[in-house]
Design a protein around this nucleic acid. Sequence first.
DNA 1: ATGAAAGCGCTAACAT
DNA 2: ATGTTAGCGCTTTCAT
Lengths: 364, 364
Amino acid sequence: MDVARIAGVSQKTVSRVFNDEPYVSAELRRRVLDAAEELGYRLNNAARALASGRTRSIGVVTLGTALYGPASLIMGVERAVRDMGYALRVVNTVEGDPAGVVGAVDSLLDQGVDGIVISEPIDDGRDGDLAARLDVDVPVLVLGAPPFSAPRSLVAGVGADVMARTATEYLLDLGHVTVHHLAGPQRWFAARDRAQGWRSALVGHGRAVPPVIEGDWSAASGYAAGRRLASDGDVTAVFTANDDMAIGLIRALTEAGRRVPEDVSVVGFDDIPVAAYVTPPLTTIRQLFDVVAQDGIKRLVHTIENPQADPLPASEPPVDLVLRASTAPPPTRAPLGRGRRRTASRPDGCGPAPPAETMVPAQN
Amino acid sequence: MDVARIAGVSQKTVSRVFNDEPYVSAELRRRVLDAAEELGYRLNNAARALASGRTRSIGVVTLGTALYGPASLIMGVERAVRDMGYALRVVNTVEGDPAGVVGAVDSLLDQGVDGIVISEPIDDGRDGDLAARLDVDVPVLVLGAPPFSAPRSLVAGVGADVMARTATEYLLDLGHVTVHHLAGPQRWFAARDRAQGWRSALVGHGRAVPPVIEGDWSAASGYAAGRRLASDGDVTAVFTANDDMAIGLIRALTEAGRRVPEDVSVVGFDDIPVAAYVTPPLTTIRQLFDVVAQDGIKRLVHTIENPQADPLPASEPPVDLVLRASTAPPPTRAPLGRGRRRTASRPDGCGPAPPAETMVPAQN
DNA sequence: ATGAAAGCGCTAACAT
DNA sequence: ATGTTAGCGCTTTCAT
């Protein structure tokens, strides 16, 4: 090609220069670089991919939402992927999309990626046998879901159960007799994981396991759940599967005259940016999305580049319980009894909360 | 290739089948499809790109944040890009990243994209002359920033000034003498746009223009600003450049004993999912991210595929002011005067807010 | 340390 | 309606 001609070298030498291969004299390297500069030359990726059979790109399948968790995870993935010298291709699936995850993976495969990341897949019944319906010839990293019996598949970002258990146990330690759970949609593995951790904490302490209330991650669904829970005087503590729902829940409780945290304690999950500033500031589990993403991508790239080698071991993310003002010991007075208590009185349960914030870090 | 051999046709016929080109008999099409199925064949994108000179992919440069606005915009972009039959490549820039937008664009160009989307670029002084330092040979769509003198560049998602003006005028119409503004970081075009709209509303009504307070989009910065504003009795209305800051602001005001909306009205921007459920539910400007993204991408693809043709006209997004409970007429009593009034009293300004919510749609 | 030749799997342009 | 012939711009393999 042109650069080779102008520099007066062979095409292969140009290739060597641009691939940082050894065995090029400084002299030639200079000439090539100069010629390239002059021509505004850049390596053609398509040709490279065609000749080498590798695209140096990783595809990620994500849910098409701006939910804080998934969005943060994607940001972490992008960074990690780029740090490893790969390009990122993104496809998102929409809930209810007929093609679903399988279709998304397929389109990524069409595009010729070297590896695939599936972030927070949901189990809509069709994808249950994901592994079976997906024949993938590249390594796959599943984020926030159980492993998946493909040939070279990895998992990261599970462990929400431990975090959920920590949150629940914290509430029990405050003296609550039991803890209710406002769960995420159970089609999400992440939601099931959290419910599981909550349940195991209760069982482990010999407590009653109240029925789970299922939301859809939205503040609106938290609000709806809150209206139901508010009328049940036995409810003194709720562990919520994400912060948005916790905020909706708190609003409903407050409107119903049940003060948070005096009457009811609430723990969220995620530590979204506004969590410290809502009323009352939210006690919540902080997720370390970048750490999870980086660990996962490192292992994925390792598997891509060393097809034969054993996969790298996963690192366990720490558990961060951020203590703020939405939790307190249960009310000392006897519980309200079974009767419905629904007042229309103006709530006053949103007093000033200490800006103080305590961390209970790394439990594992 | 193999498929051609097995189907007993020429390679070109296979190509035609997979590109939905005309002039293939149903008979041959079947044979080709069968052979492909049997072999698990899929078009090789790299070869295709190499031969055709087009990659059918679009690259997007985004900020590496999970902020609701940018994240929503990206989701919209992904959807729109895929609907147009293109693949999406993503690179994010980190604030303070030495390479910045220019570097990101460059890496996209290396990857061989057909078009580029730059989402919410920030002007860090170095990128001021973006156009100059960026020589791009593909069409560029800039989202949420002023045009940009590259050969084939388009703009979408500006118009925040109109929305900001609407918000400000709404507060003036409620009877407030003036409106303060808690702005986003002025390196962001979006933040400047909103400040501009606010300013022009005040000037247009002959009102005093108070000094701008600059935040960083975070609830924390809104809280800090709120502590300052709370001590100024003249402040009865604040227009905030995003909802997160509004939430922080409200918390600070509330803690300082200034009730929202009785003493101070607050309008946010974005309509984040929890906006309707915080205390008090937030009056805010809703941004229609998908609409903006879709419109922009449509025009970008048009420019990619019709290099000679005139660009498609941009469509103006409507302005949606969502009325909730954080706004009210100013207090009827005389303003508190210039004196500092900082009480430590327990606030009670977070009463139940009507779930009702009114929309003031399309102002342009 | 450098180069020559072949070919990756497609599409473009031109037959037929 | 279908086939033929040339590359696209690299990397690979093998010489030198």
